[in-house]
Write a protein that binds this DNA or RNA. Structure first.
Length: 568
RNA sequence: UGGGGCGUGGCCAAGCGGUAAGGCACGGGUCUUUGGAAUCCGCAUGCGCAGGUUCGAAUCCUGCCGCCCCAGCCA
């Protein structure tokens, strides 16, 4: 018996349904079996990640199986390039299909046979109507359709015609195979849906072997049935297709029982939407093609490749997916939830480093010139096993420009004239003088340090509220930092149909900081590793943006900043 | 005016007739050499609305209202 503990306490309607199926033995002893069926015609995004991880975790939680099957039934739109990127993305997410990587096109031959049996049973016919005529005969939402004049062709004629379709005797689009169901159904999908169309096009896997290709509604349920898929999950917009799904599976069970592994059933759930981004393939493609972003893997994109390049971990995405849950209600999840998942993981796994993103020089006037002292700092606070590192401290340091205020408000706990602040891991300093250039811009802060306040052996008795990060000027490594922010300035870029969504693009979604001083340890960082730049944000050392050898760090997500919130 | 869905706090989401879980967000306290983290507290007299059934309704019934999807030889 599977109880809540074994399924991680998940209480969504799909888990409930599966538990019930198991209790009632509706699976007849077969393992729970799910699948993710991408069409290789584009890049995967975080919405797909929800579907992938849902399907995969169901299989895992119920000790079942998970297949990856490409729905490659439309050669015009599909490419091997997308097959490769999708495989890479799903593998990176951690969903494991073991040895069950399939393609709908693997089953074209048996599907052809199944179509023949449908014809033999008088349930499918070749229709010579043009595309426009078929549309006209279909009727409208409120009016029933009209039977095609070819609807009652004899079995032999249909069989012969279908075979000639396969042989390539007819032009693209000249004929189709249709199911004979009900032209007056309130459900448009049941008005004699097209099962096969003629497409003289080369397929990325089957080449020119076929010139007729099955439609999704015919192909998908049958593929599920022969793979033994027990629970075929898809998004809400397929709800209307379910009667057709069942029609196909029922016919497969009746007419071709020898290949049916399981009488699969379709269950729909709501797809993921998130604020401050767009999710449709069309819109994502526009962002890339119109160069609003650098590519499909631009760290601002909601694509899996983009999330990966941003530095977000698969663990955080999986955590996010579980917290979002699954239901049938249309929803838009707050980006803040994803950010929370990322921070929560990185808090305990990302070593700390100091870098000053917007530096201003501070000179410790009572520190001897040329003298360097090493300060020990923990790599991961609260985790002694992560150890410490030594950071050089000297007479000249950089501090964050906004960690100084000449005329600060009451609650400003950082540096200001005559006030003291602690340099993390080092000494307490006081600001004595502010130096400006002719334009009034602060160029240097003159400070003095208190020798009794050495971190770890402070004998001054001072209680200093503010702690700021710093980098020694003399020892600083230089890095490039990409400060990424939301791609859009509004929660829902698609809300107003009058305004093109690209008008809502955030002009500050990427701010590049070059020559950023960072502590020397940064030079030893491994590409692909993640850090917290103390008091600022989590960063990812971009392994693909080496360029001139200067390390490039992508901002993954900012730290929570209650000071910034107080300012508002 | 056809068919299929959905409406529980700002955002997700449990709940399936016994008196509104949880997470995020938000507000406040404690602690803190990250204004981070941690920790504690607060946050729906009410579940789209209106009736009804019942000792008792978010859960059952009736009627409304609102939103989403469907007329590809796309998936």
């Amino acid at each position: 018996m599977i109880d809540q503990n074994e399924t991680g306490g998940k209480t969504n309607f799909i888990y409930t349904m599966i538990k019930d199926d198991l209790e009632k033995d509706r699976l007849k002893g077969k393992p729970v079996h799910t699948r993710f069926p991408p069409e290789p015609n584009g890049y995967l995004h975080i919405g797909h990640a929800k579907a992938i991880l849902l399907n995969y975790s169901i299989a895992r939680d119920f000790d079942g199986k998970f297949n990856l099957r490409f729905d490659d039934t439309n050669p015009i739109k599909e490419e091997q390039e997308f097959v490769d990127s999708i495989i890479e993305d799903i593998r990176w997410l951690g969903a494991d299909w073991e040895d069950r990587l399939f393609f709908s096109s693997d089953y074209f031959e048996i599907k052809y046979s199944f179509a023949r049996r449908l014809i033999e049973a008088g349930r499918a016919y070749v229709c010579d109507l043009s595309q426009e005529e078929i549309r006209d005969y279909r009727g409208t939402l409120t009016e029933p359709g009209t039977d095609s004049p070819y609807r009652n062709r004899g079995v032999e004629e249909n069989l012969a015609l279908f075979e000639r379709m396969r042989k390539g005797e007819f032009e693209t689009g000249s004929r189709v195979l249709r199911a004979k169901i009900d032209m007056s159904s309130g459900n448009l999908n049941m008005r004699d849906p097209v099962l096969y169309r003629i497409l003289h096009a080369s397929h990325h896997r089957t080449g020119d072997k076929w010139c007729i290709y099955p439609m999704y509604d015919f192909d998908h349920p049958f593929s599920d049935a022969i793979e033994g898929i027990t629970h075929s999950l898809c998004s809400i917009e397929y709800s209307d297709h379910r009667p057709l799904y069942d029609w196909i599976v029922d016919n497969a069970v009746e007419l071709m029982p020898e290949v049916v592994e399981f009488r699969s059933r379709q269950t729909e759930f709501a797809r993921l939407n998130m604020n401050y981004t767009v999710m449709s393939k069309r819109k994502l493609r526009r962002l890339v093609e119109e160069k609003h972003v650098a590519g499909w893997d631009d760290p601002r994109m909601p694509t899996i490749a983009g999330l990966r390049r941003r530095g977000i971990t698969p663990q955080a995405i999986a955590d996010f997916q579980e917290r979002v849950g699954v239901s049938r209600a249309e929803s838009t999840v707050d980006l803040a939830l994803l950010e929370h998942c990322i921070r929560q993981e990185l808090e305990t796994t990302a070593p700390r480093l100091m870098a000053v993103l917007d530096p201003v020089k501070a000179v410790i006037t009572n520190w001897p010139a040329g003298e360097t002292e090493m300060c020990a700092m923990e790599n991961l606070p609260g985790n002694e096993e992560a150890g410490t590192r030594e950071i050089p401290f000297g007479r000249e340091i950089y501090i964050e420009r906004d960690d100084f205020m000449e005329d600060p408000p009451k609650k400003f706990h950082r540096l200001s004239p005559g006030k003291e602040v602690r340099l993390k891991g080092a000494y307490v300093i006081r600001c004595d003088e502010v130096i400006r250039d002719e334009k009034g811009v602060i160029t240097e802060l003159r400070c003095t340090y208190d020798p009794q306040t050495r971190s770890g052996r402070d004998t001054s008795g001072k209680k200093i509220k503010g702690v700021i990060h710093w980098v020694s000027v003399e020892h600083a490594s230089r890095i490039t930092v990409n400060l990424y922010d939301n791609l859009f300035t509004v929660e829902n870029p698609e809300e107003d149909s009058e305004t093109d969504f690209v008008n809502h693009i955030n002009p500050e979604s990427l701010v590049v900081c070059k020559n950023v001083p960072a502590e020397p340890a940064v030079a030893g960082a491994a590409p692909g590793s993640r850090f917290q730049f103390l008091r600022k944000a989590y960063f990812y050392l971009d392994p693909e943006a080496s360029g001139d050898g200067t390390p490039v760090f992508n901002r993954i997500v900012q730290l929570r900043d209650s000071w910034a919130r107080m300012q508002k």
